[in-house]
């Protein structure tokens, strides 16, 4: 039942993007996500499209795997697009494109919807380039390393990262266990596939309870194992993994930063000189 759930969607490879430092990739992805919101015209969207496709090409990712990530937000996409189409009022003096009773559709609304649609799609595609080229473990290390400054403020950075990495490493065995419990309950005649919503929800109780109990047992054993290996929190702890910046990080970082500096500049220009038509529409 849960066999095909793969956590994290790492796509193994050794491309330029794969080899970049996860910290840099994380920061650049955040920059990308912020940058997308400063794209206002379709012309600039075209630039972003080319840029994103170029990154995907350099990362040697099959386009399909990147597009697959959109599946998860389809409902959101349809909903926001429809809302924008139907509820955006046209600019002054604009004739509705189509009207029926109180429902009016304006060209402005269609444009608005298309832009929101593109923004969301690029947002998800951009972040999936990160998760496709970076292992969950690397991401955890990147988060720990980037949050380190917060340690001064007593934020438990190490504990936070450890919880993340333990969660990641226990997911496969919890999935296995769930699978096993489901089969065991089925063998005793449990029925998960028929009946109404409430009946089905109830059928999951005999799965959740053993899973929870098992989880506590595992936690206890893990605590013993960690104690036996001299764990005592973050004090004096060292780390085997060293993250080093290479020329790739400087080149990649420079290109992305330069691109979005351009985007920000265009945004500023469009606001200042709204009459430069291609920047605004």
């Amino acid at each position: 039942m849960f066999r095909d759930v793969s956590f994290g969607q790492y796509y193994p490879g050794s491309s330029f993007v794969h080899k970049m430092d996860p910290r840099i990739k994380l920061v650049l992805t955040l920059l990308f996500m912020v940058g997308i919101f400063f794209v206002q015209s379709f012309a600039v969207f075209a630039f972003v499209t080319v840029f994103l496709l170029a990154i995907i090409f350099i990362a040697r990712l099959p386009l399909r795997s990147v597009l697959k990530s959109i599946k998860g937000i389809i409902v959101l996409l349809v909903l926001t697009s429809l809302l924008n189409i139907f509820f955006t009022k046209g600019v002054e003096g604009e004739e509705p494109l189509w009207a029926w009773r109180k429902i009016e559709i304006y060209v402005t609304g269609l444009k608005q919807a298309a832009k929101i649609f593109l923004r969301l799609v690029y947002l998800v595609m951009g972040s999936s380039v990160l998760t496709l080229t970076t292992t969950p473990v690397d991401l955890t290390h990147a988060v720990e390393s980037l949050l380190k400054p917060l340690r001064v403020r007593k934020f438990p950075v190490h504990e936070f990262a450890l919880i993340m990495s333990l969660t990641l490493s226990f997911i496969p065995s919890l999935i296995d266990e769930t699978d096993r419990i489901i089969r065991a309950q089925k063998a005793r005649g449990a029925d998960f596939d028929t009946g109404g919503l409430i009946k089905r929800a109830k059928a999951f109780v005999p799965i959740l309870i053993p899973l929870l109990v098992g989880g506590f047992r595992r936690a206890e054993e893990l605590a013993n194992a960690m104690n036996s290996r001299c764990y005592e929190g973050a004090t004096k702890r060292t780390c085997m993994r060293v993250m080093k910046l290479t020329w790739r990080d400087f080149v990649g970082g420079f290109v992305v930063v330069a691109f979005f500096t351009g985007v920000f500049l265009l945004y500023g220009m469009a606001n200042k000189w709204g009459n430069i038509i291609w920047l605004y529409y």
């Binding site: 473990v137 333990l166 490493s169 054993e221 001299c230 764990y231 702890r237 780390c239 060293v242």
Partner: peptide
């Protein structure tokens, strides 16, 4: 239970857990 003793999802990082706790240099 071997599954309940693994702290990392990569073998070498799991083995490194002990020395890391002791503060052994990288």
């Amino acid at each position: 239970n071997p599954d309940n003793q693994m702290v990392a999802s990569i073998v070498e990082e799991d083995v490194a857990f002990g020395p890391e706790n002791l503060g052994v240099p990288q």
